[in-house]
Each structure stands twice: as structure tokens, then as C-alpha cells.
């Protein structure tokens, strides 16, 4: 599971999918996750990196991340 290749992510939280021309807004953690999804493929890796830098417990983090990724799939931003 990876973010599609050409997705443009700006620091401001603007996300653009050039393949189909859709654009999105996301918050700062969203930006951080999307960036990680460019290279990393396992949710465990991403979860542990979030827990390292954010004040959050692992259950909340995992729930939120899974929810976020499901939405990314719905928006067609994820490669199988």
C-alpha cells in the first residue's frame, strides 16, 4: 500500500492528484502521513513514527490512521 506516484503535497496542506485533477486540503498530521506514505508501506511503521513525535497513545493513533487511509483509498490516492 503506497501513495500514488505523482501526488503533489504542499506544506500548507494542499494536495493535488494530477492523474484525475482532484485537489484536497489536509492538516499537518495529514501532510506528515502522506509524505511517509510516499515511501513507507506498512501502517505499523507509520504508527510508531507518529507515536515517537506526537503526544498520543497507540490505540488512538492506529484507529485514526486506519480511518485516514480508508478515506485516502476512497479518494483514489492509494495504489494497491
Amino acid at each position: 500500500m503506497k501513495l500514488k506516484k505523482n501526488i503533489a503535497i504542499s506544506e500548507s496542506g494542499f494536495v493535488f492528484n494530477p492523474e484525475i485533477g482532484t485537489s484536497f486540503t489536509t492538516n499537518s498530521l495529514g501532510v506528515a502521513i502522506l509524505k511517509q506514505l510516499k515511501t513507507k508501506t506498512s501502517t505499523e511503521e507509520i504508527t510508531s513514527s507518529i507515536i515517537k513525535s506526537y503526544d498520543v497513545d497507540s490505540i488512538t493513533c492506529e484507529k485514526d490512521l486506519e480511518d485516514f487511509i480508508r478515506i485516502l483509498e476512497q479518494f483514489n490516492l492509494i495504489e494497491d
Binding site: 504542499s10 500548507s12 496542506g13 494542499f14 493535488f16 485537489s23 486540503t25
Partner: peptide, 11 residues
């Protein structure tokens, strides 16, 4: 250009 669209939608 997309940047204006980005500016208004983010800020």
C-alpha cells in the same frame, strides 16, 4: 495557475 486556487482554499 493552481497556486491561486491553493491559496484561497487553504488560507
Amino acid at each position: 495557475d493552481l497556486d491561486k486556487y491553493e491559496q484561497i482554499s487553504i488560507h
